[in-house]
Amino acid sequence: MPYSEKILEHYNNPRNVGTLDPSNLAVGTGLVGAPECGDVLKLQILVNPLTGKIEDAKFKTFGCGSAIASSSLATEWLKGKSIEEALAIRNTQIVEELALPPVKVHCSVLAEDAIKAAIKNYQEKQESVAAQQAKPEPVAVG
């Protein structure tokens, strides 16, 4: 099947391949897909706590060219966005931008899922931090 120029461009020059430190509280990690299904997508965001904006995004993908291009595009779009803006990204926008053929729509769905998973992971981390801080300091005895 012939691929669009945009898919090939992202595949040949993927943006933001890499890994952010998952133990950093400002980092959210999403891991979606399954090896048996032929696609696994790991997407990470780094959120600036002061501005609430996504400062950096990285991905690693096991999958076809369309899956790699969808991930690459997603990281590109995430940078500079607020969480709310990031949550508004739809797979259909990825389909349109990359001109994904119908059999490859699932790659864009996976990218949207990965964005949501990364945000969820970030938010859970923030909530647990808040919960930690809300706890009273243990009183030192004696």
Partner: peptide, 11 residues
């Protein structure tokens, strides 16, 4: 291992 076939064919 760790590389998907179709993605590889594109490469």
């Amino acid at each position: 291992a760790y590389v998907e076939g179709e993605g590889m064919m594109m490469g």
